Amino acid sequence: MAVKAAAHLYLHKLPDTYSAEKQLIKSLPRMARASADPQPSQAFLDHLEETQGQVARIDEVVELLNLKLKRIKCAAMEDLVEEGKDLIDEIEKGPVLDVALIGAAQKVEHDEIASYTTLTTLTTKLRYTAAVPLLQASLAEERATDERLGKLGQAAAIKDAAAAGKARWHRTSSRICGESSYSAGGVAGTRSPDALGGFHDPATSPYWSRGIVHRRRIGHGRLRRIGGGGLD
């Protein structure tokens, strides 16, 4: 159907939003289970309940206006849901994943805020007066959820994620380099094997940086020097 008028756009946008909400209902429980922090997990579950109510409101709008909607799959929500799945698959459960899921959920909220804003505007312009409060209620819920998620993202979860990242960096560097304590010339530090099997001191090696030998393989396994004469 070619969209040539506001009424036509409305008949496209309403089922598109309905599809988005239906997809989100399937996605939110998975996000709640994947979250290690009970606060974002509860936020996802709370919004699941709200989303079910939003689907019911769209059903009510359709009944009030005596509309017949075509079945549409919201491509934007499909991509956002897939992004959430990828995050869960690629990041282990913990504070880093929690922060990533909060960000993904906010992207969903921004999309839904835009959808309900458009629907509310069209409903008003088309003088579908009885339906306006229903869509305004859903829009208010989406904005409140976005604000709640934003506050969670700025709270302890960020600090926990940063701490987890730093701890992992140290564990990884120790594992890669096989660090061991040493004392030479009265200076305590670490010594670790380089890519060629020798040991290099932090104070004397031009390509030693914080216990990590930086590697970047070029071509068929050749090693090149990088920044500041570093061995790669």
Score class of each variant (00 low, 15 high):
66 N>E: 14
66 N>D: 14
66 N>R: 15
67 L>R: 03
67 L>Y: 04
67 L>V: 04
68 K>Y: 03
69 L>N: 06
69 L>A: 04
69 L>D: 11
69 L>G: 03
69 L>K: 01
70 K>A: 11
71 R>N: 08
71 R>F: 06
71 R>W: 04
71 R>C: 01
71 R>P: 01
72 I>V: 15
72 I>W: 02
72 I>N: 12
73 K>C: 02
73 K>Q: 13
74 C>I: 09
74 C>Y: 03
74 C>A: 15
75 A>T: 08
75 A>K: 11
75 A>F: 03
75 A>E: 14
75 A>D: 13
75 A>G: 07
76 A>S: 08
77 M>D: 14
78 E>R: 10
79 D>N: 15
80 L>V: 07
81 V>D: 05
81 V>G: 14
81 V>N: 13
81 V>F: 10
82 E>P: 06
82 E>N: 11
83 E>Y: 14
84 G>I: 07
84 G>E: 08
84 G>H: 09
85 K>V: 14
85 K>I: 12
86 D>P: 05
86 D>W: 11
86 D>Y: 12
86 D>I: 12
86 D>H: 13
86 D>L: 13
87 L>H: 12
87 L>C: 10
87 L>N: 08
87 L>E: 05
87 L>Y: 11
88 I>L: 10
88 I>W: 12
88 I>A: 12
89 D>M: 13
89 D>H: 15
90 E>Q: 14
91 I>V: 15
91 I>H: 14
91 I>N: 15
91 I>L: 15
91 I>R: 13
91 I>D: 15
92 E>M: 05
92 E>F: 04
92 E>C: 05
92 E>G: 03
92 E>H: 08
93 K>E: 13
93 K>L: 03
93 K>W: 04
93 K>R: 13
94 G>H: 05
94 G>I: 03
94 G>R: 05
95 P>W: 01
95 P>N: 02
97 L>F: 03
97 L>N: 09
97 L>I: 02
97 L>D: 07
97 L>K: 10
98 D>K: 03
98 D>N: 06
99 V>L: 08
99 V>Q: 05
100 A>K: 11
100 A>F: 05
101 L>M: 10
101 L>K: 12
101 L>E: 07
101 L>W: 10
102 I>S: 00
102 I>L: 06
104 A>L: 00
104 A>Y: 00
104 A>Q: 03
105 A>M: 07
105 A>C: 06
106 Q>E: 12
106 Q>Y: 02
106 Q>G: 02
107 K>H: 13
107 K>E: 14
107 K>G: 15
107 K>Y: 08
108 V>C: 03
108 V>I: 13
108 V>H: 04
108 V>A: 06
108 V>D: 00
109 E>W: 00
110 H>C: 02
111 D>E: 12
112 E>T: 01
112 E>V: 01
112 E>W: 01
113 I>S: 09
113 I>E: 15
114 A>S: 14
114 A>V: 06
114 A>H: 04
115 S>D: 14
115 S>N: 12
116 Y>K: 06
116 Y>N: 11
117 T>S: 11
117 T>Q: 04
117 T>Y: 01
118 T>A: 07
118 T>Y: 02
118 T>E: 04
119 L>Y: 01
119 L>R: 00
120 T>Q: 06
120 T>L: 12
121 T>P: 00
121 T>N: 02
122 L>E: 01
122 L>R: 00
122 L>H: 00
123 T>L: 01
124 T>W: 05
124 T>R: 06
124 T>V: 07
124 T>E: 12
